[in-house]
Design a binder for these strands. Structure first.
Lengths: 356, 356
DNA sequence: CTGAAAGCGCTTACAG
DNA sequence: CTGAAAGCGCTTACAG
């Protein structure tokens, strides 16, 4: 077996040809100081000639002798209310198991989605811990900005997942493009309802007015109707109570005054509440669209009460977030500023093959 | 910085505790012969205690000193007829660039999808070359079986992508689950057409009767109609001519006798031919579903003549195929016998975010 | 059945 | 400004 053909020559070969040591070659490769212009040029020329590609394996292995990299992750806690956040965390775990060889340590912090102060508190803890990189789901805008400012100041890379904060320094945003997510849902509704049927857009969340994700999806949804049908067909439904009983009562009330109901679009993963209600009032004829590949939702998908689940790969968001931090910190690899997730459509017929 | 905490002790630490050399530890780890039961047990116990996890990096780096691994890939050539096969090849290329550090060499062989003999010929060339592993898209069943028999005999791992051959030894099948792909399409049609409308199922391919993929999708499609509507609504359309002119003429003829046409389901990537025809006869009202994220198809998706594209990640099939061979050959990692791809639904509203 | 030693390709602390 | 040597954690050919 040949080795050191041009295509896989290493630092040794370069050193030999340049009549220097591998240490000097290494210095040039990494643009470190302390090499005379003359030798630098000579070495660079040889690197060009050989089309040198570093062996990433060996690089990482050698790097392992350096200190541990500490990453902090700040995510909503998994609550009874929603298991959504399990998925990004699984993604983080998967990434961790892949890179733990390289002495990466991940510290996990959780906050209560409904309590602003808990976010603030955890953010403070992170800043005290001084990690090398941060992954955060910026549920609360103002409090997130504090964290982003801290990172910016100390040059700590910070990746946002699930929702973005504009106008602030961050390494990368990894998550859905919300407008088109709503727009797509409207398109599906359009395909499935008959002329003149009304559509409910249901926002079910503790906070709606500050919930950028919900508002943006609604915008996209309405934009489609404006372009292709009429906004008059869209009936708003808002509930800041998120328990089944209240939601069901409110929906029943709305139903009384509305006979030509064709579809309901729920702007988040609470779609199972509506599905439960549809089951209770025995209305399989109403098209129901909502979010996220959660057990309960899939359950109603199977039964036929949910027609479409929209899903934006939450697991991959966590996974890719960690990997992005890692690549940046270890190899100074450039990161995509906006990594938008695909908008997956899941039905009763294809959910068995879905991979988060 | 600590090292050798229990969680990242290596062979050295094991050797120290067992009072043997690392070579012996290595033998035990890899179940090699030539170690006395007694020391074997002792070492295994320590491995358990320390919850030893090998450092994959170091493993691979050390392995690099062994010979080159030679993989053969047999795929349809990219033709003017369809650019579909570009994607799996790109996946192969991506995998190659990730693992080329480990001295893996990939030899690519291409055959003409329409010429059985060309498949045979290339298969012969591969068998002469005696590669360590094979990735093949088994377009021609009988000829593929010859290749599979060869692999089986010599214990060469073989991965099939895109379509499967049952009853033969192979390491793994990576590709779509065709029945549900057809079934899902029927479900989408069901959502979108109104009562009593007819649906054309269009098979456009040189060979139809031997084309397992097409037949199986049709089965799934019909099964849905049988369960939920009626098979009588399904009109067959077959064309073994794949040029636009012939297809268009045939379609126009069929259209004359059929007034209540609601949708057309094309069982492969030739959907753009039908889209072109719909454009020519100005029938945007007909729902059109077909396969694959090809430029031309996406073009018609954008224009509104294609409504849904079904896509089964062809690029990932190639990528994962190579990775599976690699993992198996290098680490004796177990492979999933059937790795079924998700069935992605792409529309005008989400195609911009799709990632093959 | 077992071990000492060299090697995979790169990086670094130290000495000059 | 430069180099010799050790090290990352694992594997292997060779010697006994």
């Amino acid at each position: 077996m040949k080795k050191n053909t041009d295509s896989n020559a290493g630092v040794k070969e370069i050193a030999r040809r340049a009549k220097v040591s591998t240490a000097t070659v290494d210095r040039v490769i990494h643009n470190r100081t302390g090499v005379s212009e003359k030798t630098k040029d000579r070495i660079n020329k040889i690197i060009q000639e050989l089309n040198y590609q570093p062996n990433v394996l060996a690089q990482r292995l050698a790097l392992a002798s350096r200190g541990t990299l500490r990453l902090a992750v700040l995510l909503p806690a998994i609550s009874e209310e929603t298991e959504y956040w399990k998925a990004p965390l699984e993604g983080v775990n998967k990434a961790e198991s892949e890179i733990k060889q390289y002495r990466v340590q991940i510290e996990r912090y959780f906050f209560d989605q409904n309590i602003k102060a808990s976010f603030e508190e955890q953010a403070q803890r992170i800043m005290k811990a001084e990690p090398d990189g941060i992954l955060v789901s910026p549920t609360f805008e103002e409090e997130s900005k504090v964290l982003l400012a801290y990172c910016s100041e100390r040059n700590i890379p910070c990746v946002l997942i699930n929702s973005d904060i504009s106008g602030y320094d961050r390494l990368s945003y990894i998550g859905p493009e919300l407008f088109h997510s709503g727009y797509l849902s409207a398109q599906l509704v359009h395909y499935c309802v008959t002329k003149g049927q009304k559509v409910i857009i249901a926002n079910i969340a503790r906070e709606i007015d500050n919930n950028f994700a919900i508002l943006r999806k609604e915008e996209g949804f309405r934009a489609y109707f404006k372009e292709n049908l009429s906004e008059k067909l869209v009936l708003p439904f808002n509930s800041t109570d998120t328990d089944y009983k209240t939601v069901a009562a409110k929906l029943s009330k709305l139903l009384k005054t509305e006979e030509k109901l064709g579809a309901i679009y729920v702007t988040n993963s609470r779609v199972s509440l509506v599905a439960k209600w549809l089951e209770a009032v025995d209305r399989k004829d109403v098209l129901l669209i909502g979010y996220d590949f959660l057990d309960e939702n899939v359950n109603y998908l199977e039964k036929g009460f949910i027609d479409f689940l929209i899903c934006e790969k939450p697991q991959e968001q966590g996974y890719r977030g960690i990997m992005t931090l890692f690549q940046t910190l270890v190899y100074s690899a450039p990161a995509e500023e906006n990594y938008l997730m695909p908008i997956d459509i899941i039905t009763r017929a294809n959910y068995k093959f879905y991979r988060n």
